[in-house]
Design a protein around this nucleic acid. Structure first.
Lengths: 269, 269
DNA sequence: GTAATAGTGTCTCTAAGACAATATGAA
DNA sequence: TTCATATTGTCTTAGAGACACTATTAC
């Protein structure tokens, strides 16, 4: 048995197996109170016409994080975006790309609603897609827009959801998107990253709508207000007020300085 | 500006930049109430003689997870270990390996105290090292063994710690180990993975010593007992008792079936 | 006025943490 | 007996969630 296990390193470090390494991006934002992801429609084989995450090859002279930042700038057409960017996970199934052996390092980006979603981008067809449409299973409480806006009783909306419109994804990008959304949902509990979805100054109500969009739930505005303002360092009053949401004028806040929320904002069971 | 951003994919997918891909393992266990990591002393350049994590190249026909499992079996000399194995993060700084461009996917393994730490292993010099010795900064409440067992007042232990014995790591393996320990600490809060450090049947006290070793803190045995046995699905009484820890006989438990603890076991502030 | 959103107060219940007291084995 | 560990119980306090009520704007 000892001999059986002892066949060590059969690879000369000078002749290592060659892999392609890519970065794929899960870029999330909240638009019109809905969690949305930046998606591409592929123009080439393999998977022509399928929905895919933005991404591309890592270049020899750049680190993984630099590659992610470069791709993000290329796809959004904007440099130095005020986004949060973190590594998500790495995907390396043998057959995940039919052309060759590719290992993809996925990154998660959280951004405020961007002025021009695809302005100047080089990608064939980049657009914001509501995640509840792409991954209806992650939003069991949300009826999709199509259902809400058309007559009930049509065959394809009989169960409240048009299965026929569920996206067909390229590669393993559905799984990566699922993992990215789950990471974002979890990060909202323990970090102040919900504010990464908001403009520099925001109201408590706007922050609450971020939580509701990402978690796919409704929250009690009164308890939410007490909790956010009672968590030390989460938000700081900026002095101003706004009525951009209608109703009574709301205080404006900016992001505080803590990196971990204590107590955390726990998702409802 | 639009033109400036629009220089897309300069790489023909048929001529992608070639990377080496490795897996590195953070293998943690609890031995004699101390969190310990499986470490290698390197026998070759670069970084001869330095402390490193076990790992190796991913082979063309295996996935990342398969490579991690294979390396784990090779390094421990045991197949089908009852370990928890999960992906940790991926490290791809341009110059992290002086020989070539290497992207390393790190995995975290949590194992019960293994019968023979390095029996039959092929690695030159694999051994269990207490993490408090490797990374004293992560255990501010722990005085290292050397200090405890020698006379106080020696120059090199004047501050309660022998700086001269701090490990010199190869590559970026210190950072990977730090990240692995932090992941393990965090996982113990929200999952029942502390039991992955225990034999199939264990006592509440043994489980508590796992938390104390990983977190580097002391916990109140009475509150801990109430909390563990009060968290539904965490542990199930197996019927037996043991006195292997001395004192009054303790009930034996096995792992329950939940994957998420509710309520969680929060680290003391 | 009504509608809409913002914000405060109050009550209940769960759970965390401090710590007293008891239980049961080994030396 | 003493010592070491296990286990139960009690008290206090922080925080989550339900929800009544008030505040301030637009229309």
């Amino acid at each position: 048995m000892m001999a059986a296990m002892t066949e060590s390193e059969p690879y000369d470090p000078a002749r290592f197996p060659a892999f392609a390494v890519t970065v794929d991006l899960v870029v999330l934002t909240v638009r019109e109170s809905r969690l949305s992801a930046l998606m591409i429609r592929r123009g080439e084989e393999p998977f022509v016409g399928r929905t895919a995450l933005p991404g591309g090859f890592v270049r020899p002279g750049e680190s993984l994080g630099e590659a992610a930042k470069r791709e993000l700038a290329e796809e959004t057409g904007l440099a130095d975006l005020p986004v949060h960017l973190e590594q998500l996970a790495t995907y390396g199934a043998v057959d995940r790309d039919p052309r060759m052996r590719v290992v993809s390092v996925a990154y998660l980006a959280l951004a405020p609603d961007l002025p021009s979603p695809t302005a100047g981008g080089d990608a064939a067809d980049a657009h914001w897609a509501p995640v509840a449409d792409l991954l209806p299973d992650l939003f069991p409480n949300v009826l999709d827009a199509d259902h809400v806006m058309t007559h009930a009783g049509r065959a394809d909306v009989a169960d409240g959801r048009r299965k026929s419109e569920r996206a067909a994804f390229a590669f393993d990008h559905e799984q990566i998107l699922v993992d990215g959304v789950e990471r974002a949902r979890s990060k909202l509990e323990y970090t102040p990253l919900a504010a990464a979805f908001c403009p520099p100054e925001f109201t408590v109500g706007e922050l609450r709508r971020v939580y509701e969009a990402v978690w796919g739930v409704e929250l009690d505005p009164r308890n939410f207000h007490r909790k956010v303002t009672g968590t030390p360092g989460y938000v700081l009053p900026s002095g101003g007020t706004t009525t951009r949401q209608g109703g009574r004028p709301a205080q404006l806040f900016k992001r505080g300085d803590v990196t971990l929320l204590n107590p955390p904002m726990l998702r409802p069971a």
